[in-house]
Amino acid sequence: MDTAKWAKRSASILGLLGVWFVVGALGPQTLPGPAAVAGAFVGYVGSPVYWNAITLSTLRVLGAFTIAALIGVPLGLLIGWSVVFGDFTYPALELVRPIPPIAWIPFTILVLPSLAFSLGIASFEIDTGIVFITFLGAFFPILLNAIAGVRSIDDEYSRAAQSLGAADWQTFRHVIYPGALPSVHTGMVVGMGLAWVNLVAAEMISGGGLGFMTWSAYTGGSYPVIFVGMITIGILGYVSSTIVRYIGASQLPWMEGSTA
């Protein structure tokens, strides 16, 4: 990238900070400016409360996303592959899908228990409700993209495999699965983003993690911390999407335009 471009791009970020600074100085008393937020950030980086919140939120997203991928990918591939299997399963899922995961929150608080268990050195308590909400956020994008991925594969690839002597499961393994992977990958990127959206909402309402930290900063009146929370969530969301993208790209060396 040449210097002129760098300068323009830096101007863009500085402009954003400038607007924030001006609005913070002239606007409502309650809005902290960049300096106040930076100060709060410095204070929080040394605090275990901050790191505990980060660890808890990250583990929840990681766990929920993994479960969503482990269920969503095989289920989506099967639904896309077999018309009959799809007919028996998909309509039920389609009943549930339009309900935004966040609307499940009251239900999950009521119905899903907290799991407490210990592993010798440390004991854990898993709020299954929050994990479930986060799971739902990631699950449907992954599922839908897996289904779409299979359906986008031209039938002639399966025919070619059959004519070369592939059995049904071999066609699945060598044609359906690899052919759907690019779309599955897209679903995972989207799913990771929605996992964070729903996690934050669930944590604000039922407690723990960065979502709760941000919300209690509002209720407790320490307004700069709200922005510390937002920025931290933004960074973590960005990093996790980047990791998913990177892993995906490394699995798809055959895609046109890939560098591998």
């Binding site: 002639e156 025919r159 070369l164 060598h174």
Partner: peptide, 30 residues
């Protein structure tokens, strides 16, 4: 379909996710 009746399609149907070597091996590999 049966491997004794091989098919070449109008649009190229090499598996894009396999290398040329893997594509060539596909039938016997099955």
């Amino acid at each position: 379909p049966d491997p004794s009746r091989g098919v070449v399609f109008q649009s190229n149907r090499l598996f894009p996710w396999k290398t040329i070597g893997q594509n060539a091996r596909f039938g016997p590999q099955m």
